[in-house]
Design a protein around this nucleic acid. Structure first.
Length: 343
DNA sequence: GACCCGTGGGT
DNA sequence: TACCCAAGGGT
């Protein structure tokens, strides 16, 4: 059984020497804390998202909206456009709802307990614990994918994910302590991200091998064990690039719920396994100019792109450059394909 | 617990 | 190529 206090001390020492410098992180060793607003914003952006992808969004958001009160005052469409390309758009809707709740109910000040944080929109168990630990230095059990992997290896957990979650959470809780709780959470994530990596862990650089059960087995990369996932189905659809006499593009606002909810989009058919009918959103001359491929979390998609000319009151007519910036990636691809013309 | 929800990089 | 994976949350 790994010795928890020794491991904890070893990882904090490692963190003091190897902490990553990140835009939302106070300089390690400075004794400073990051403002709750910046911790919260970064944590939401980092949900299922890599650091390199999220970082430029974080810089743009904080430059444009320096406080949670500034963010709370933004119009929905402006916020969604600023989030375009980052994915998981429910996060953007919840981000705004959360900012408005903090600016309103909480007087512009983030609550400092896990329980109150957890009650905010878009803040789940992980994010509530992370904000409590990192922004307020409260001893919270911060468990993300990195922490699950590190725990599964330290203790050579033989239960496969996702069933192992409660056990991994219990193990992570053994390390929670009032001494440097914010640094502990970030140290664990830095280790998981840079050393205790999913595919080829760098055990030679790890400060915890002395107490790691998976390392003793000689095959640490086998952990965490996992149950197999179902295959991803493929769907087909049509996307319509409709332009008016001024060259503007017809956009629609998608319903608030479901895929790409609340985002601007091109008019499309349904997306289904069987080829959907070609039913353009306006009469006139249409021609197919090609297709684009896109992969979502639970299906992949081939979108046939059609170009036509027309008018209509049901659309938001937008200059192509403006449209591209506000669109989620699948539509940005389709728009670029449409504007490029036939092969 | 199962399913839905994006995107881009790594292997 | 076809996966896997990332500082998850909501329903």
């Amino acid at each position: 059984m790994p010795d928890v206090p020794s491991l904890r001390a070893a990882l904090l020492d490692w963190y003091d020497a190897h902490a990553r410098r990140l835009p939302w992180r106070a300089a390690p060793g400075s004794g400073q804390r990051t403002e709750p607003y910046r911790v919260w914003l970064s944590e939401v952006m980092l949900q299922q998202t890599t650091v390199p992808h999220a970082a430029p969004y974080f810089e743009r958001f904080t430059a444009r909206w320096p406080t949670v009160t500034d963010l709370a005052a933004v119009e929905d469409a402006e916020l969604m456009a600023a989030w375009a390309g980052l994915g998981y758009y429910a996060r953007a809707r919840n981000l705004l709802a959360c900012a408005r709740a903090v600016a309103g109910t909480h007087g512009g000040v983030f609550p400092d307990t896990e329980a109150e944080l957890l009650a905010l929109p878009g803040v789940g168990a992980y994010t509530a614990a992370a904000v409590a630990a990192i922004a307020f230095d409260r001893p919270a059990n911060v468990v993300d994918g990195n922490v699950e992997r590190v725990m599964s290896r330290l203790f050579a957990v033989e239960i496969p994910l996702p069933a192992a979650r409660p056990e991994l959470r219990r193990l992570a809780a053994l390390f929670v302590d009032a001494h440097r709780p914010g640094d502990w959470a970030q140290a664990l994530m830095d280790l998981g991200s840079g050393v205790c990596r999913p595919k080829s862990p760098l055990c030679g650089q790890c400060p915890l091998t002395f107490g790691c059960e998976a390392w003793k087995t000689g095959a640490p990369a086998l952990y965490p064990l996992k149950t197999k996932k179902a295959a991803r189905p493929h769907r087909l659809g049509h996307a319509y690039v409709l332009r008016d006499g001024a060259g503007r593009v017809a956009l629609v606002r998608r319903p608030d719920k479901g895929l790409l909810g609340g985002m601007a989009g091109l008019p499309t058919s349904d997306w289904s396994v069987a080829a959907p009918a070609f039913e353009p959103p306006a009469a006139g001359d249409w021609r197919a100019v090609g297709a684009v491929e896109h992969v979502f979390t639970h299906f992949s998609l081939t979108l046939t792109v059609h170009v036509g000319r027309g008018d209509g009151a049901d659309f938001q007519w937008t200059a192509p450059e403006t449209a591209a910036k506000a669109l989620p990636t699948v539509f940005r691809k389709a728009l670029e394909r449409g504007l490029a013309g036939p092969d």
